[in-house]
Amino acid sequence: MNAPWITRSGIWLAAWGMTTLAFWFLGKVTDEPQDWAESAAFALFALVLGDPGPRWRRYRRSRKLIRTRSAPPAISGVGHSVKTAANDISG
């Protein structure tokens, strides 16, 4: 992100505002009107519960990559010296 005014908390506030508006609008459409406080509380609840899922997947994916990258390579003949023509001549 190139805009300095967009911060992590700004993104959360924008998501909370849009989710609040969506829940309020959904209540109006379904003829079950909710006031702004109820919509805002439910939006906060939905964002807090919705965030750990993707975080957990990112954590597990990064742990899997670390385990895969730190595994020793499966190379046959490890520890054997390579003979060259110079070594054959000298001895």
Results as ranks from 00 to 15, higher is better:
residue 39 S to K: 03
residue 69 R to N: 12
residue 22 A to S: 13
residue 9 S to E: 13
residue 61 R to V: 05
residue 10 G to W: 07
residue 57 R to E: 11
residue 22 A to K: 09
residue 51 D to G: 07
residue 9 S to L: 14
residue 26 L to E: 13
residue 50 G to I: 07
residue 54 P to V: 10
residue 29 V to L: 14
residue 72 P to F: 08
residue 32 E to S: 15
residue 65 L to C: 10
residue 43 A to P: 05
residue 54 P to Q: 09
residue 15 A to L: 09
residue 47 L to Q: 04
residue 20 T to P: 03
residue 62 S to M: 11
residue 81 S to E: 01
residue 3 A to P: 06
residue 89 I to E: 05
residue 15 A to K: 00
residue 4 P to F: 05
residue 3 A to T: 14
residue 40 A to T: 05
residue 8 R to W: 14
residue 77 G to Y: 01
residue 77 G to R: 00
residue 18 M to D: 05
residue 61 R to C: 04
residue 76 S to V: 06
residue 34 Q to H: 14
residue 62 S to T: 11
residue 7 T to A: 11
residue 91 G to R: 02
residue 14 A to P: 00
residue 80 H to R: 03
residue 54 P to Y: 09
residue 57 R to F: 15
residue 56 W to I: 15
residue 8 R to D: 14
residue 4 P to Y: 04
residue 10 G to F: 09
residue 39 S to V: 03
residue 80 H to G: 01
residue 52 P to V: 13
residue 75 I to K: 03
residue 10 G to P: 04
residue 57 R to V: 15
residue 44 L to Q: 03
residue 66 I to D: 08
residue 72 P to K: 12
residue 21 L to R: 01
residue 71 A to L: 12
residue 36 W to I: 09
residue 87 N to E: 06
residue 64 K to T: 12
residue 59 Y to V: 10
residue 60 R to N: 08
residue 77 G to M: 01
residue 3 A to C: 13
residue 54 P to G: 14
residue 18 M to Y: 10
residue 26 L to F: 15
residue 27 G to E: 00
residue 6 I to E: 08
residue 2 N to S: 15
residue 52 P to W: 09
residue 62 S to G: 07
residue 52 P to D: 03
residue 64 K to A: 15
residue 73 P to I: 02
residue 20 T to N: 00
residue 33 P to E: 12
residue 13 L to M: 06
residue 58 R to E: 08
residue 50 G to M: 06
residue 62 S to I: 08
residue 5 W to S: 15
residue 33 P to C: 08
residue 1 M to F: 14
residue 25 F to D: 03
residue 82 V to T: 03
residue 74 A to V: 08
residue 31 D to S: 14
residue 77 G to T: 01
residue 55 R to G: 11
residue 25 F to G: 05
residue 45 F to C: 09
residue 44 L to Y: 04
residue 8 R to N: 13
residue 77 G to H: 01
residue 28 K to G: 13
residue 76 S to T: 06
residue 64 K to L: 14
